[in-house]
Simulated scan of single mutants.
Amino acid sequence: MLKKIYRGVRLLPKRGKEPYLSFYKILGFYPFNITLYEQALLHKSSSIKLKDGRWINNERLEFLGDAILDAIVADIVFKQFEYKKEGFLTNMRSKIVQRETLNRIAIEIGIDKLIKTSARNTTPNTHMYGNALEALIGAIYLDQGYRAAKKFVDESLIGKHLNIETVAEQEANYKSRLIEWSQKQKISVSFDLIDSFVDSNNTPIFKTAVKIVGEQAGLGTGYSKKESQQKAAKEAFNKLHRNAAFRNHIYNLHEQQQQLHNEKYTKVQTEDCVSEENPEPEG
């Protein structure tokens, strides 16, 4: 407690000055170690080289913030939905921490105005701002601890920019729903990365195909493998539920596959029985 008061007193001359004021407007509190927060908004395209030869940007803080955010959101939905099962809670967490949501919130709280980048492509689809938001959460955790990070996520992000009940009513994670359907129907589903490249701004692009019983059912392109899988899964899931002809085609393919499997199994069993009844003569 005394340490916190001492830090607060030490910051008094700096409060109201940039960049402390800019961070205060976003965070609702003044940073202790402002260097962490500045690094959180340093995109890899503007990496800084230190005297010891190391390059720094916000990627390490993003890695930490991603893990902290997952834990915080899991904590929140666990307490918010007391009687819901594990599958529902997992889907809720996925929908809250998905890149599109984080990117939108990051822009709404003003991170796009503060991030340092030399990348030409600063469109929201790059998820640059959502990644910076995760890095900022990592910085809060290192600077002021888990409790402060949780308060920021719960009150400043979710409380002001998300309606938990609305999120709960949204369509669940398409990849999870497709896998759940495949397990229930005992039908094989695979996610295949069919292409990856960089665009004119050197931004990685991924393309994924969803195959059901070996039949291509959906294609998705995104700025991460996860995003491309979700888009491909959404296309496949909607196709299954809205296109009766395609759904019947998949069921027929599955039946044919099962029939071939059963015939092959029967043939192998028959050959084994014949082999046992007519063993080869000893030399």
Rank of each mutant, 00 (worst) to 15 (best):
S45V: 00
N121T: 01
I26V: 13
S94I: 09
Y20N: 02
I96H: 06
N91P: 05
I34N: 03
I5Q: 10
S224A: 10
Y37Q: 04
Y20D: 00
L193M: 14
K226E: 14
P279K: 13
W181F: 05
L162N: 07
R10P: 09
E227G: 07
N58V: 00
S176L: 04
A209C: 11
H43E: 02
Y37E: 01
G16W: 12
R54P: 04
K79I: 10
G53W: 14
D195M: 13
L193I: 14
E165F: 12
E62R: 13
W55I: 10
V213C: 11
E276S: 15
I179S: 01
N202C: 02
S46Q: 09
S200L: 14
S228A: 15
K84D: 15
Q229M: 13
L42Y: 05
I250P: 05
L11M: 09
L157W: 00
N163G: 11
E108V: 06
I76W: 02
T123Y: 07
A168F: 08
G218I: 01
F206C: 06
H127G: 01
L219Y: 14
Y251D: 14
I76D: 04
N33W: 05
D143E: 03
L133C: 10
P31H: 00
F246N: 02
A132N: 05
L157Q: 01
S22M: 03
I179Y: 00
G222H: 07
S94W: 08
G222K: 09
Y265G: 02
Y265D: 08
N91Q: 12
N131H: 06
L142Y: 04
S46L: 07
S46A: 15
I34D: 00
V167K: 08
E276T: 15
R120G: 11
K267N: 09
K184Y: 08
A168V: 03
K234D: 00
Q80F: 09
K25W: 03
A232L: 03
E282R: 08
E134L: 11
V198L: 07
V274T: 12
K184D: 12
I5C: 06
G138I: 01
E100S: 12
Q144K: 14
Q229A: 13
L157Y: 01
F206A: 07
E38C: 11
F246I: 03
S275M: 11
A119S: 06
K267V: 02
K160R: 15
M1C: 14
N125E: 15
K79D: 15
G8F: 11
Y223G: 13
A106H: 12
R242V: 05
T221N: 01
V9N: 04
F81H: 12
Y146L: 01
E108T: 11
Q216S: 13
I105E: 03
T123V: 14
F78I: 07
G130Y: 05
K184V: 12
L114Y: 06
T117H: 05
Y30L: 02
E165W: 11
L11R: 12
F63H: 15
E100N: 11
A40M: 03
G145W: 03
T166F: 08
L64C: 10
N243R: 07
Q216R: 15
K25R: 15
H161T: 00
Q185N: 10
D112Y: 13
A74W: 14
E100V: 11
E155S: 05
R177M: 04
L36Q: 04
P124H: 08
P204R: 01
K95F: 05
I205C: 14
Q230V: 07
N201H: 04
